[in-house]
Design a protein around this nucleic acid. Sequence first.
DNA 1: CATGTTCCGTACGCTACCGTATGGCTCACA
DNA 2: TGTGAGCCATACGGTAGCGTACGGAACATG
Lengths: 194, 194
Amino acid sequence: MARATTASAQAWTDAAYARFQSGGLRAVRVEVVGRDLGATKGSFYWHFGNRQDLVAAVMRRWEAEQTDAVIRAADAGGDARGRLSALFAAVAASAPHRGGEARLYVEASEEGVGDAVLRVSRRRIDDLSELLVQVGFDESEAARRATIALAAVIGLQQLAVAEDSSPGEFGGAALTATALAMTVSRDEPTSRLA
Amino acid sequence: MARATTASAQAWTDAAYARFQSGGLRAVRVEVVGRDLGATKGSFYWHFGNRQDLVAAVMRRWEAEQTDAVIRAADAGGDARGRLSALFAAVAASAPHRGGEARLYVEASEEGVGDAVLRVSRRRIDDLSELLVQVGFDESEAARRATIALAAVIGLQQLAVAEDSSPGEFGGAALTATALAMTVSRDEPTSRLA
DNA sequence: CATGTTCCGTACGCTACCGTATGGCTCACA
DNA sequence: TGTGAGCCATACGGTAGCGTACGGAACATG
């Protein structure tokens, strides 16, 4: 049986995923992951064809986890507004654990896995969009607002990474609340001030 | 006169900046920039101490240009609302030319130039924040909204990069208009739907 | 014309990667 | 017990970077 999913292949993927989470795809180096594992390239190239296969495995796992997370977020009971605030809170809470994802948008195209990133992004937009429709926005406005909201989350990640893991000027709960408010609020009819 | 700013040093910085604009700091490689220039490392290491010096020069230039851009944007006449929409439109229009900046947030910490990125980010937030105050928000709310708005712009850049320079699902004018609306709109008093 | 300074090309060493070749260990099983 | 398959370590070749050593060209200037 050639190159089945043996325990070792799984171990390689696990270790690679750990590297990815902290340093992005760029940190998924076969010799480095091998050292984490106490193994050498001899093992790696028996289980995988090349580094791209490992990166692809990492991305499959990432996509699956993100999909699961979305499903769990949608499972949270309550009305649409409650689900919205729960979703924003969950995103804010999980921000520190997504250092790898911050690097993903740029790396995706270079590593040839841009499609997975786009699928996950569109899925996130679609799910958020659906909630916004339930709150009263029409489809296209909801889609636009969902896109902007996702972009805001991604941008905050970027700023946090640039800050280099300091306390977190860009990670507070107040920002999350503001982002939610901006996402669900409509223009007020009478504009104050010119 | 040791290592003055000769024409060649300027040429190295120019060529490095061009590389940065298209491929980020990661694309600023001594030998590659040298090839662009028809020169070799012998020249480089006469004018610069090491690669970090070149990266620092690129960042100085980037920071100066961004500051200039902010000043020009503020110069645009009109009331606060007009300046806001002009600002959003200008940002959207310049998006295609900022492929290097998209990579900057992640690279900044790795290359040790995170401070420049943070200065520019804070400056952008401050300027936008001031406009939002003029439109009627209190200081802290304006600051939060400005942060989210900047994050949204950054996030759209990230999504566009992940898309790998395809037509541009994340670059339309409709999104820009929505982002502006979300930034300046307050909660409507009566919430429709539960 | 001699000499020193400025500037730069070439050659080298070093590290970190990827991928390949090859030999050898271990275990199932005939 | 012998043998083949599965698994892996070691060693090697190759590329892309950074930084250094060194020699030499060009030019000014005494």
